[in-house]
Design a binder for these strands. Structure first.
Length: 553
DNA sequence: CTCCCTTTGAAGTGA
DNA sequence: TCACTTCAAAGGGAG
């Protein structure tokens, strides 16, 4: 088990500075509309990376970053914000599993950050400030009462809030191994950035509480009563509250939380909200992955009658009783979840099919370690899922969606889709294709790391093959599964295969800004913003590819 | 109102 | 073992 009390007191203290400072700069945040969200995220990432690289030497820059002087100028604020992001990341990425799918689930603990509570049990100023910042409507008590084991800790109020390590571990906790080794401190997932893009404006902003909600929407059974993404964490009888971290923000402000925030605050301790036939794990903890077919909930909140009618007729009654446990998201789904809003914000396209194409290409353009993070997340998602639902099988969900005719899919869908898509962003898609690799084979070459930690242990860019440099993209061709690595149960101890194939970076040109001019499509849309991105731009620029037109070859 | 589209990956099915 | 299918998210579009 990871230690629960890693020395993080200084960080919390720094957080205090940061939080109060950020609080002050929150106003500025609203007027800094010129700051591209993409660049913003990149800046945060870069700063984190730089700090990571200088981790051992504890450079001056690190010192200054660790002790930002709150000055009322924008530059300082930006600096402080970066530090804040880092501090947040360190909390959330501290070696424990922070499931984006199950944020706040009892497994999640903060290892390396001191408790948001003071020694007297009261909420620390930083935690309170942060809670206020994130949840303006929330009345955050500063008393020790919250630390009562049967009362929700402040952590459950937000999945990004510093969380207390709880003495009472969930019984399932030991079942999952958490290790820092999987994640390099210097490679913070971009989704851990404290900011979020407004999908409409593209302006970075502080995520609304609803956007901090789990990937899995709240149990629909609880949805009507619990207007809180973490409502399922409400302690059960005889159970202790579990700390929350979660690191993923919800990319979409879809969940209707605004109006119900206050009711949440007032009702979060109410016993009634814990009695839900659906969404309750066997431990008694309602889980967002459990979605009742009766109220199959959409992230945007629309559900009920329509979704109900969606249920297949024959077993309708039975399905009503049996909650629908969704599949855990795979790595790419996690990536999409995180990046979709970003892409949507940068592009006028709204159609998910087109967005997904972009995301798919960006996914392939991600470096190995970038992808490895998502593979690792996905692996833990599955692990957690299996722990939560031991008897569940993907087979259970078979047939709950109408079967598709995939026969025609490979033949015409792409062209049909391109024919339909005449929206502005599509114009750039062909260009994008020129800089990207053929997705179908690339994925396999990237070797969805069976052992993502291996890839992380030895960060390296996937070696592009000749084929992917030369072959036109087939949007519908599945990757060569022979090259896929099965997800292993046990993570590798050290770098192995990934490092051997990591020489791909030698084949790739240095990361350059996009040479091709695009007027309206953000460059980041075409390439991942990651500093680790080993783009093959130069290799692809000559490829006359079209994203929306399936290659006839 | 329902399904399709589109992406990747995991997992199930059937030969 | 292999190929194929289904589902996970998302939301506009089509029927």
């Amino acid at each position: 088990m990871p230690q629960l009390n890693g020395g993080g007191g200084d960080e919390l203290g720094a957080n205090d500075e940061m939080i109060s400072f950020k609080d002050e700069g929150e106003q500025e945040d609203k007027i800094s509309e010129n700051v591209s969200a993409e660049r913003d995220l990149d800046d945060v990432k870069s700063s984190l990376v730089n700090e990571s690289e200088n981790n051992s030497s504890s450079s001056d820059s690190e010192q200054t970053e660790r002790r930002p002087q709150p000055r009322p100028d924008h530059e300082s604020y930006e600096k402080a914000r970066e530090y804040f992001a880092e501090a947040l990341r360190r909390q959330q990425d501290g070696g424990f599993f922070k499931s984006p799918h199950y944020p706040g689930y009892p497994f999640l603990m903060i290892p390396d950050l001191s408790s948001p509570y003071l020694s007297n049990g009261a909420l620390s100023p930083s935690a309170r400030t942060y809670l206020h910042m994130k949840w303006p409507l929330l009345d955050v008590p500063g008393t020790a009462t919250l630390k009562d084991s049967r009362s929700p800790t402040p952590g459950h109020l937000s999945n990004k809030v510093p969380v207390v390590q709880h003495a009472h571990m969930h019984p399932l906790t030991p079942l999952i191994t958490y290790s820092n080794e999987h994640f390099s401190p210097g490679t913070p997932p971009s989704h851990l950035s404290p900011e979020i893009l407004d999908p409409k404006t593209g302006i970075p902003r502080t995520p609304h509480p609803s956007e901090l909600s789990p990937y899995y929407p709240l149990s629909p059974g609880a949805m009507g009563q619990i207007p809180h993404p973490l409502g399922w964490l409400v302690p059960q009888q005889g159970q202790h509250m579990y700390p929350i971290t979660g690191g993923f923000r919800h990319p979409y402000p879809a969940l209707a939380m605004n109006a119900s925030m206050s009711s949440l605050v007032s009702s979060r301790f109410s016993p009634h909200i814990v009695h839900h036939p659906h969404g309750l794990h066997q431990t008694g903890i309602p889980h967002p992955a459990i979605v009742s077919p009766a109220i199959k909930q959409e992230p945007n909140g629309e559900h009920s009658p329509a979704a109900h009618a969606k249920s297949p007729g024959p077993n309708k009654k039975e399905d009503d009783r049996k909650p629908h446990i969704k599949k855990p998201l795979n790595a790419f789904m996690l990536y999409m979840k995180e990046m979709r809003a970003k892409v949507v914000a940068e592009c006028t396209l709204k159609e998910s099919a087109a967005i997904n194409q972009i995301l798919g290409r960006r996914w392939h353009s991600l470096s190995r370690e970038e992808q490895a993070k998502y593979y690792e997340l996905a692996r833990k998602e599955r692990q957690l899922h299996s722990q939560l639902y031991p008897g569940w099988s993907a087979r259970d969900n078979y047939g709950k969606r109408k079967k598709r005719k995939r026969d025609n899919k490979t033949d015409s869908t792409a062209e049909d889709f391109s024919a339909r898509n005449k929206k502005p962003c599509v114009q750039y898609l062909p260009q994008e294709k020129m800089i990207d690799s053929p997705g179908s084979s690339h994925g396999s070459m990237l070797d969805s790391p069976a052992t993502p930690s291996a890839a992380l242990a030895s960060p390296a860019a996937p070696a592009p093959t000749h084929s992917e440099q030369a072959q036109p993209l087939s949007l519908t061709t599945k990757p060569d599964r022979h090259h896929h690595y099965p997800v292993l149960a046990k993570p590798p101890s050290s770098s192995s295969s990934s490092s051997s194939s990591s020489s791909g970076s030698q084949l790739t040109p240095p990361l350059l800004s996009r040479p091709l001019p695009f007027s309206s499509l953000h460059a980041s849309l075409l390439s991942p913003p990651s500093p680790y991105h080993h783009s093959h731009h130069a290799l692809y620029q000559s490829q006359p590819l079209s994203l929306v037109t399936k290659s006839a070859d």
